[in-house]
Structures are given as structure tokens and as C-alpha cells.
Design a protein around this nucleic acid. Structure first.
Lengths: 340, 340
DNA sequence: CTGAAAGCGCTAACAC
DNA sequence: GTGTTAGCGCTTTCAG
């Protein structure tokens, strides 16, 4: 078990001061007027013995941990893991690491994660906030911490936001269903009032209203047992025979919904039309393939990262930024209406 | 920007020593004989002012960071993100946090991540190792760091392992295809020699051999462009018309493969049988639904976490553990053979 | 039972 | 140009 080298050791071995070594290692040799000769000597030695500075000590000293905390709803959701991947990849290059946590849409958990991140002295935050976290987030912002939220955001939030146009994405999908001749379009969404969900519902309602069609909203509890969800959707189908299309507010609701359709013997295209908010890789491979509102996942990840890095670097307060990205309706077979 | 409280501050305010506060906060009041009265007083005050210790300083002092480093192949792969989720959830309760990184199957990246984790003084490692990382890992182990690998492992690795029986899982799937009457079964796998992939290939070969059937192996480069993969699979289908079933070594290869089948106008069930190693949620919803070898994702996550926690707690060396979990063949429609 | 004090390893102000 | 040194905030030994 090789004893770990410290700055002191290498300074001792080289008969120079710790400061010089530190300067060189931090690229401040010039600034502090270290001779090129000494710099090279130090660099070479450090390289040779494979010395790696202890980040913890550096962090304690500087107050910068080179770490960012990221809260997603659920890292195993393809939408969030895809974004996490992009963020990780790009922020890593700038020397930052990511600590992440899944909130499961619970404000308690999210708050706990935030506290944890704080204890770990993260330099910045990337958050898919839960409802009720506004105060905590604004507190962070007011303390001067860089914060970027994505996916959802209350207007009260005083930080940078990277969002997609949920309203228009949703509206476009529903209008498309209407165009295709569906006129009893139900929407399956979540009970809890996440802002992005509300927008999606609003888009749905707006589209219906334009054509004077009646809404049918079915709300599912977040994290409800999948079997129960399926059952409750089957009941919906049974009790409201007039429904001729369904619009799902999230990818996982759609997965339960498709299962419910299958178990109910309802055939997509023949009996019912389907569209989903949030495209996942495989929807193209379903049969029929599923029409979906695609969110620009890579773009979201990139924007979030870029903004956070800016805020991390410039300590002279930048105005918080508001990015609203467009969604894209990917029309596939599930929203087609068979000629009767 | 409220100045952050330090131990010193609360000790000062209470006119007690820093040590007493530290003892109480670490639940060592009894051990150091702090009076219950003082303990309560301290606890109450800390609660009231909302003091939160600086973990960095504690880590620097104790050498324990209460953090574990986790390397997956790709956090956006459903297999890895599902495991990450389980690990996160369970290790969090024990007070540990996770820093993660995606290796993209690159030893260089993985090595870099390992180094980073070390600099951050993580207390333990959860790794899906890349080929060529054996030495680095053994070094860690020999230094006394708790390490658990999963998904894949070279026999040289001197640490705990949580694996699935890739050989038998693969063999069972192929035997099932053979049972159903397929006799020209191709396997699509990766070029690079990850141990778990080799096992999957071996299982495939063993099954064929039992029945004297000829193998057709198609290797795809890891991280190959999806379109190229699809193209190359389409070519395979065109050039080897005799193929009547395909077994895919991973979920993402299957996704490309299904696309290739679709684009080639080859209809699953009618023209070809399909099975996949690694089940993903949606395979049940594909049409036809896809037969797959399911890995016990939750179980893997739980075992990994449990073993790591054991190693983290008992510093008296436990023998490294070797867990081999069973896979489960989920028979769905894609492997059925239509009566001619 | 409680308090003073010595560091953990690094950075950066300041002295030479 | 280079070295000395005072902490960052916490834990833990040891003296009282």
C-alpha cells in the first residue's frame, strides 16, 4: 500500500518550497515569476513519481470543489439519463465532476439532495426541480450559487432555465390528431402539478377548444404502481367507449397505456389513435410505430452545461438566461386514421 | 449571503469546546462521556441555527469522503441506468453519495475516471470495467480500497464480482430458438472482447454445437454509428438469405437490428425469428413482442450495494465475494415459428 | 467529563 | 524569483 505522496514530499525531494510546486501545478508559474528551469524540473518530477494532488484539500482551501450537483426526476428514465449523459460528457472536459440524485418527484428528497450537495460544497447546480422547491432554489441563487433548471420551472424561479415549449408541442400533437379525424381525444397525465405537465395539458385543451371538441382528462398518481395504472387505464377505455384517440403526457404513461390497450384488445390505428409527449428511441420500432413529440435532448443537455459553465466562470453576475427550445412532432403510424 | 456557520461558531456561542460539539454531532457523546444535558443543549442549538458540518473538512481530516465512484459503460443505456438507480437509492440511505462516469468502453476514459475518483478520495468503487483495466483495479484493491465490479469481469480481477450467467442465458435463448425449429441462427455481437460478450458468444456456440448447427457471427464495432450498423446488418441479411433467426448480444444491437429488419422488409415471425440478450421494458410492447434474456437488474444493484457497504464497514478484510446471478428467458412472440 | 491544540494537504498572501 | 507560513473546518489525542 504505497503511501500517498503529498505536496510537501515532492517539495522536500526537490528542495524547493511547497508554494513553488503549487504555483507550477496550478499553471501560475508565470504569474508568480517561477523560472522556466524550475518549472520544468518540477513538472518532470511530478510526472515521474505520478503525484496527484488531493482535491479535497484544495477544495477546502479554495472553497471550490470542481463538482456540480444534479437532480433529475429519475436517472433510469430515458429522458433524464440521456440528458445526464450529455451533461456529464461536456462538463467533464472542463474539469468538473457530477454528483447526481433522483428526486422521485418528492420535494423532501430533493431538498435533502440539495442540502447534501451544499455540504459537499458543489460549485453549481443542475436541477429538474420538484414543485415546492422554489424557495430553496431561490435561496441558493441569492447566495450566489450558479443554478440552472431544466425540464420544468415555476416562473418564480430566479435562475437560468432551459425548457421546451410544452404548450406548443402538446398543442401540435393534438391538432395533428384532430386533423387526422379524431374527435374524442383523451389525455393521460399526472396528478401532481408540475409546471411542464400543466403546460402540456393546456396545449391539449387549447387544441381541442379551437375545434370545439370535448376534453377527457385522466390523471395518474406519480409513481403509481404500474399494474394499477394499467388497470385504471383499462377502466377508462371501458367506461368511455367514445374515446377514439389518446394523448399521453410522458413516455412512461404511454408505456402503461399501450399495455392497457393491448390487454383490452383495442388495436391502435383500427380502433384508436395514439400520440405521446416525449419520444423515446424505440417508439419508431413499435408496431405500429408511435407518433411522439420529440424533445431536443442533446440540445437541452448542451445548453444546460454551457450556461452553467458560464455562470461558474464569470463571477460577475450574468443575467440569468431563459432558453425555450422547440419540440418536434414525429408523425408515425399510431396517429393515422384508417379509412373506414 | 448568510455567512456559513462553522463548528467554531456554534462552540463559541454555546461557550463549550469544539470537541464537545464534534463528539455530540458524531454520536460519540456517550463514548466521550458528554453529559446528557450538554448533549441536548448542543443538539437543540444546532437544530435551531441549522448548522451543517462541512463534509470536505471532515473528509480531509478523516480520509473518508462518504462518496463512492461508479463507472458504467453508458448512463443512458437502460441496463446501466436502472442499476445506477438501485445503487443510488440504497447507498444513499447509508449516507453515501455517488459520483458517476460513463466509460464508453474506453480504457483511457475509465482510467481517467478512476484517477479522478481517487483524487476525490472516494471510499469505494463500483465498476463495469473495460477490457484492459485489470491492473488499475487490482492496484486499488491491493491498496485496500473496496471495489465491486459488475456486468463483466476478467478472472484476473481480485475483487468482489456481481455477474450474471451470460453463458447459460445465451445458451438457453439459442436452444429455445432451435426448439422452435430455427436452424440458421446468426448472432450479432460486438468486436471488442468484453468478457461478458465472449460468454454470450460461447453460450450461442455451445447451443448450436449440441445440435450440429452452423454458426454465423456478425461483429459490430462498439459505438459504431447507428446508421452504419443498420446498413451492415441489412447487408448481412441480403448476403445470407439462409438465416432464419437472429440472436442479438445487447439491447442496442437489437434496436439497430430490428430497424434493419424493418427496412429490409423482413417480417419477424413470418420470415425470421428474433431473440435478444438483455430485456428492456418495452420489448413486451413491440409488435411482435421480443423474446429476451432478462437480467435481474434490481438484484444486481442490490448485491453490488450490499457487498460494497460490507467492505466499506468492516475494515478487517472480508474475502472478496463472487456472485453469479441467473438470467431468465422471457419468451414472447418474436421467437415463435409460424406453422408453414 | 471537558477543553486545548495538533494536524489532514493544499493555496496564496507576504516576506525575503 | 523563491520560501515561510497562516489558515480552510473538522476530528481526535491528550492533558486537566
Amino acid at each position: 500500500m504505497a503511501k500517498k505522496l503529498a505536496l510537501k514530499d515532492i517539495a522536500g525531494a526537490l528542495k524547493v518550497s511547497e508554494a513553488s510546486v503549487s504555483y507550477v501545478l496550478n499553471g501560475k508559474a508565470r504569474q508568480y515569476g517561477i523560472s522556466i528551469a524550475l518549472e520544468n524540473k518540477i513538472l518532470r518530477f511530478v510526472e515521474k513519481v505520478g503525484y496527484q494532488p488531493n482535491r479535497l484539500a484544495a477544495s477546502l482551501r479554495t472553497g471550490k470543489s470542481k463538482t456540480v450537483g444534479m437532480i433529475v426526476e429519475d436517472i433510469s428514465d430515458p429522458f433524464f439519463s440521456a440528458i445526464a449523459r450529455v451533461v456529464e460528457e461536456h462538463i467533464y472536459k472542463e474539469g468538473y465532476r457530477v454528483i447526481y440524485g433522483s428526486s422521485e418527484n418528492s420535494t423532501v428528497i430533493a431538498r435533502d439532495l440539495l442540502q447534501t450537495f451544499k455540504n459537499y460544497q458543489v460549485d453549481g447546480y443542475i436541477l429538474a426541480p420538484t414543485a415546492g422547491l422554489e424557495e430553496d432554489i431561490n435561496l441558493l441563487v441569492n447566495e450566489g450559487s450558479p443554478v440552472v433548471v431544466f425540464d420544468r420551472a415555476s416562473p418564480d424561479l430566479q435562475c437560468s432555465k432551459v425548457l421546451v415549449d410544452n404548450f406548443r408541442g402538446s398543442e401540435a400533437a393534438v391538432l395533428h390528431l384532430i386533423d387526422n379525424g379524431f374527435c374524442n381525444i383523451a389525455m393521460v397525465t399526472l396528478t401532481n402539478g408540475q409546471d411542464q405537465m400543466n403546460e402540456r395539458v393546456n396545449g391539449y385543451l387549447a387544441a381541442l377548444q379551437k375545434h370545439g371538441l370535448p376534453p377527457t382528462l385522466k390523471e395518474i398518481i406519480y409513481n403509481e404502481d404500474v399494474q394499477k395504472t394499467i388497470l385504471s387505464l383499462k377502466n377508462l377505455l371501458k367506461s368511455k367507449k367514445e374515446i377514439d384517440a389518446v394523448f399521453f403526457a410522458t413516455n412512461y404513461l404511454a408505456l402503461s397505456g399501450l399495455q392497457a390497450l393491448k390487454e383490452s384488445g383495442v388495436i391502435i390505428t383500427r380502433d384508436i389513435g395514439v400520440a405521446v409527449f416525449d419520444d423515446i428511441n424505440n417508439f419508431a420500432l413499435f408496431n405500429p410505430s408511435i407518433t411522439a413529440v420529440a424533445q431536443p435532448v442533446t440540445e437541452i443537455g448542451l445548453r444546460v452545461t454551457r450556461i452553467l459553465l458560464e455562470e461558474l466562470q464569470d463571477n460577475h453576475m450574468i443575467d440569468s438566461q431563459n432558453i425555450l427550445l422547440k419540440t418536434k412532432l414525429i408523425i408515425r403510424d399510431s396517429s393515422a386514421r384508417l379509412p373506414e
